[in-house]
Amino acid sequence: MSAVVALSTLLDAQQVWRGRAMPVPAGEQPTGWAALDALLPSGGWPEASLSEILLPLDGVGELQLVLPTLARLSRGARPLVLVAPPYAPCVAGWRQHGVDMRRVEIVTALERDVLWATEQCLRSGSCAAVLAWPQQADDRALRRLQVAADSGRALAFAFRDRRHLANASPAALRLELEAAPRARVWVRKCRGGAVPAQPVPLALAALH
């Protein structure tokens, strides 16, 4: 044991894996919900990735979760796309949340074309965010969306029913919305960090 190798030289050579996860780059996509941002490893939506939002029912605040982000992005260079939304977006309501509706494209598509259209929009690289409501998306379909979001540098949001929580998903972030007894958001999966144990209360806009 005469040859003493200095530990620092070994480490500096970067030939030893030190078991630390990749550092998560600070994201530039805050959700607009300070409490949620504080929990997420990138300080907001994962950049150029798929975020899955799981709901028990329609109308429990799922849009209010993303509307601050959409309002911010609608002032940017690239438009927003909604692929086959379950209802018509109410122009006056979205405007009250600060979204410029002239920057929102709505794509009507049959169920079998929804995933195709979503992937095309994501991959094109000319959309800032794409929102989709896929009914029959399996693991492979979601992975395609994730890859497309990455290559098109776009935010992808998939709104799905809560029962899909049991299935694994390639999405970088999975949020579950809880409506009763009060609106809360559970982070079910987040890439690059530990899943927080506590939910975030969602303070829905006071309506008067």
Binding site: A88, P89, V91, A92, R95, M101, R102, V104, E105, I106, V107, T108, A109, L110, D113, W116, A117, Q120, C121, S124, S126, C127
Partner: peptide, 20 residues
């Protein structure tokens, strides 16, 4: 071009915007 591509498969009125 994205709009054209979507319209070609989904129909002429598939991509639109809403105004009040």
């Amino acid at each position: 071009q994205l709009r054209e591509r979507l319209r070609a498969r989904l129909g002429d009125h598939a991509v639109h915007q809403l105004g009040s």
